[in-house]
Amino acid sequence: MAKVIMTCGNLCSGKSTYAEKLGKELRAVVLSIDELMTTVLGRELGDMHDEYVRRCEQYLYKKAAETALAGTDVILDWGFWKKEQRG
């Protein structure tokens, strides 16, 4: 059964570095919210930042579930700072 692994930690604590290393070891797909936000939306998000983060998280959760159901491990690379995000 495939796993979904969530990284958790403060800004600049090494989550992305760890996620990439673990992804190679496990042959897992790494889904990074920073990568998605920067690639699609750029860095100038202004007042819409929190809304875009919410939308990207929803999208990545959906893709993580699809990937795991297809039999591949997934690593979610974002902070999960709020307790309700980890539950």
Rank of each mutant, 00 (worst) to 15 (best):
M1K: 00
M1C: 00
A2R: 05
A2L: 03
K3C: 00
K3R: 08
V4I: 15
V4L: 08
V4H: 07
I5Y: 01
M6E: 02
M6C: 08
T7E: 10
T7I: 14
C8N: 06
C8Y: 00
C8G: 04
G9F: 02
G9I: 03
N10I: 00
N10D: 00
L11G: 00
C12Q: 10
S13T: 08
S13N: 05
G14K: 10
G14N: 11
G14L: 10
K15Y: 07
S16Y: 06
T17R: 13
T17N: 11
Y18N: 01
Y18D: 00
Y18M: 02
A19E: 06
A19V: 04
E20A: 11
L22E: 01
G23V: 02
G23A: 08
G23D: 05
G23L: 05
K24Y: 05
K24P: 02
E25V: 10
E25Y: 06
L26E: 08
L26I: 06
L26Y: 05
L26M: 11
R27I: 00
R27G: 03
A28W: 07
A28E: 12
A28F: 09
V29P: 04
V29W: 03
V29N: 08
V30D: 08
V30Y: 06
S32K: 06
S32L: 09
I33W: 03
I33T: 10
D34R: 06
E35A: 13
E35N: 09
E35R: 11
E35W: 08
L36K: 12
L36A: 11
M37P: 04
T38N: 13
T39K: 15
V40I: 13
V40E: 09
V40W: 10
L41E: 03
L41V: 01
G42C: 10
E44A: 13
L45E: 02
L45N: 05
L45R: 13
L45V: 01
G46A: 10
G46V: 12
M48P: 08
M48A: 08
H49V: 06
E51H: 14
E51M: 14
E51D: 13
Y52I: 13
Y52M: 14
V53H: 12
V53D: 09
V53N: 11
R54A: 14
R54N: 13
C56D: 03
E57N: 13
Q58D: 14
Q58L: 14
Q58M: 15
Y59I: 15
Y59G: 13
L60H: 02
L60W: 00
Y61L: 10
K62W: 10
K62F: 10
K63C: 03
K63G: 01
K63V: 07
A64P: 03
A64Y: 02
A64F: 03
A64Q: 05
A64I: 06
A64D: 04
A64L: 05
A64V: 05
A65V: 12
A68P: 03
A68H: 04
A68G: 05
L69S: 12
L69A: 15
A70R: 12
A70L: 10
T72V: 14
T72M: 14
T72A: 14
T72H: 12
D73G: 07
D73I: 03
I75T: 04
I75Q: 03
L76N: 05
L76M: 14
L76F: 06
D77W: 02
D77K: 02
W78S: 01
W78A: 01
W78G: 01
G79W: 11
F80V: 02
F80Y: 07
K82T: 07
K83M: 00
E84A: 15
Q85P: 08
Q85S: 13
R86L: 11
